[in-house]
Amino acid sequence: RFEDFGGYPQVVERARELITTQFENRARLLAIGAKPIKGILFTGSPGTGKTYLARIIANETDADFYLISGPSIVSKWVGDTEARLRKLFEAAARSQSGRAIIFFDEIDSIAERRTEDSHEASKRLVAQLLTLMDGFKNEQNIVVIASTNRVDSLDPALTRPGRFDWEIEFGMPTYEDRLSILRVGARGLQTIGDLPLKEIAKQSEGWSAAELTALWSEAALMTASDGRGKINPEDVAIAFERVSSRPRREISIEEAR
């Protein structure tokens, strides 16, 4: 649920406005004469919760959820990748709930800017995706969400009006976001004592949501290996040191290419 997504209140509210309203008030929007939203880009660094929020939205709206993880859809056989995409969109159109979310994780890995040097298979894949999105009918209650941390590398045809023309940016979590993420993570755990969440939120500047969540995994491992049933403040402090000591490397867009 939305309350299980720690931090980023403005991101959650914007996503709720764009997608939940799209599903629940579609007939009203069409009566007004508004064009349905086809595609939304979730942009931001890895580990900031883009896929997690997409799953929550699907659950909150009772929509069927189709997850495509970047290169996993690509086939070595000519025409097979485009056929997979067509079948995916056809399945979404036949959704029993009448609502569907198609989520492309790391879309930049399959839909980079087309150039003369681009592989022919890549050009065909992007062209097929554009054709499928342009073929949406008003009665088809489908929203395509795509995540990327390299939005500048996407083919410009994808980001023009009528396709992925809405963007929601996931920045690195602020202090308030980090504290909220830590509290949400602790909510489902067995704990004892006054956990130092505010101190950790202050000291974890630059951490992603995924790194903050990893802290609870470390704390739980220590608790279980020590034969105890509840996480205590010392476990959390040691877990913070362990996660802090993990190797961290920032990857630039040029390196990723």
Rank of each mutant, 00 (worst) to 15 (best):
R99H: 08
I142A: 05
D4F: 07
R163V: 09
I40S: 02
E24N: 14
L30T: 02
W166N: 12
A157K: 08
V184L: 08
K35T: 14
N59C: 06
A111I: 07
A209W: 01
T20G: 08
I56E: 07
D4H: 08
L221D: 06
I32M: 13
L129A: 05
L179Q: 01
R28P: 05
R26M: 11
L130F: 04
I168P: 00
I107D: 01
T21G: 13
V126C: 03
P156G: 11
G193L: 15
G79Q: 06
F89V: 01
D108R: 14
T115M: 12
V151A: 03
R249W: 09
S97P: 02
T191S: 10
P233A: 07
I253D: 10
E218D: 12
M172H: 03
P196E: 06
W207C: 03
T213H: 04
A219R: 01
I231Q: 04
F65R: 03
P196R: 12
R249G: 15
P71T: 12
A220S: 11
R187D: 11
I110K: 00
P46Q: 09
V236A: 02
A224P: 01
T213V: 09
D165L: 09
V144L: 07
I168A: 02
E24H: 15
E218P: 05
R113S: 11
L215R: 03
G70S: 15
F104W: 10
P9Y: 02
S147D: 04
A93G: 04
F2P: 09
Q203N: 15
T81C: 12
G39H: 14
G171N: 08
L29V: 13
V144C: 10
Q22W: 13
